[in-house]
Amino acid sequence: MPVRVLESSTPSQVSGANSGHTSFQACTLLGVGQAFSGTQNVSSLQKDEAWRVNVRIQGCDLEHGYLCGTMEALNVPMADTPVVTFWEGEIVDTKNYTFFTGKWEATPEDDIRHWTKFQSFSPLMGQVEADGGKSLDLSNYPYIFMRWKEQYFVNVGTDCGLTIAGFYYVCFSCSDGSISGFYYDPNSRFSSFSYCPFQKLELKSTNDGRSGFSFPSYELQ
């Protein structure tokens, strides 16, 4: 379902290229221990396919625009067990991180192409094209934009047939805790797997961070 942006939540613009000092208010649905569940569409030209996905937030530091967690992918065809990865995230707060990635082989054009797939990004487009969104105040915006970069496999080896070379562009809804994301893999054009270029991640909050859902226990090194 398309995300609807309320007129009253249009971000304000702060004067000066370096004066964006966004500090997100604590969001109860983006706290340590919060769990999410949903799917990742990995359909190719040959077949439709979706993996069931569970995510849990292990750490969150809004002041520094940082969060981390685990992602568990189930029913992965080339794996005998669920595949768990550890990821670290960057929160686009215009202070620590902007909408321009500047690494992981992502160009500004790649960034814009992915961010514009979120309808909630539309009101920000003009300013992001101008300066990466540095002069936007997103502190009261009802959506939080992030990048999630998987760092390593937790429970399987690197020979599992999957890649973590790319990263996710993520949009988080502060109102209901839902998450939409699109995966960017700079190596996809050379991959033997003909996955669609925009693998879509769709997750919903499954608890309040304290009860109601649990993952298997994994030791993170």
Rank of each mutant, 00 (worst) to 15 (best):
M146R: 15
P142C: 02
Y141R: 10
P123W: 02
V156F: 09
D159H: 13
V170W: 09
N140W: 07
S122M: 10
Y169G: 01
S135H: 14
F167N: 13
Q119D: 15
F121Y: 09
I164V: 14
L124A: 06
L138F: 15
L136T: 01
Y168Q: 09
V154W: 01
M146C: 15
F172D: 00
R147E: 04
Q127G: 00
A130S: 12
F145E: 01
H114V: 06
Y143T: 09
F118W: 03
G133Y: 00
K149R: 10
W115H: 07
G126P: 09
C174I: 12
K117C: 11
A165H: 10
Q119R: 13
F118S: 05
G157M: 02
W115C: 06
Y168D: 11
Q119I: 07
Y152S: 02
S135Q: 12
P123A: 09
R113P: 03
V154I: 08
H114N: 12
D131L: 01
T163D: 15
F145C: 03
F145N: 00
G132A: 11
E150I: 00
F153T: 13
S139Y: 14
P123L: 09
F121E: 01
T158C: 10
I144R: 14
S173N: 08
L124P: 12
Q151D: 01
S173Q: 03
W115F: 05
A165C: 15
G133K: 00
Y152A: 07
E150Y: 08
K134S: 14
A165N: 15
F172G: 04
I144D: 04
Y169K: 02
D137P: 01
W115G: 06
M146L: 15
T158E: 15
G133Q: 04
Y152K: 14
K134Q: 06
G157L: 03
F153R: 06
C160Y: 08
K134F: 01
R113D: 15
P142G: 06
E150L: 06
L124T: 00
I164N: 07
Y141E: 08
L162R: 05
G126F: 03
F145Y: 12
Y143G: 03
Y141T: 12
C174M: 10
D131R: 08
K117L: 10
D131T: 04
K149L: 05
C171D: 10
I144A: 06
T163W: 11
Y168V: 06
D137Q: 14
M125D: 11
D137K: 10
W115Q: 02
T163R: 12
F121R: 04
Y143C: 04
Q151G: 04
F145A: 00
Y152D: 05
F167C: 11
F145M: 07
S139C: 12
Y168C: 09
W115V: 11
L136V: 02
C171Y: 06
P142T: 07
Y169S: 11
A165W: 09
V128T: 00
F121S: 01
D137F: 08
T158W: 08
W148I: 13
V154Q: 01
P142F: 03
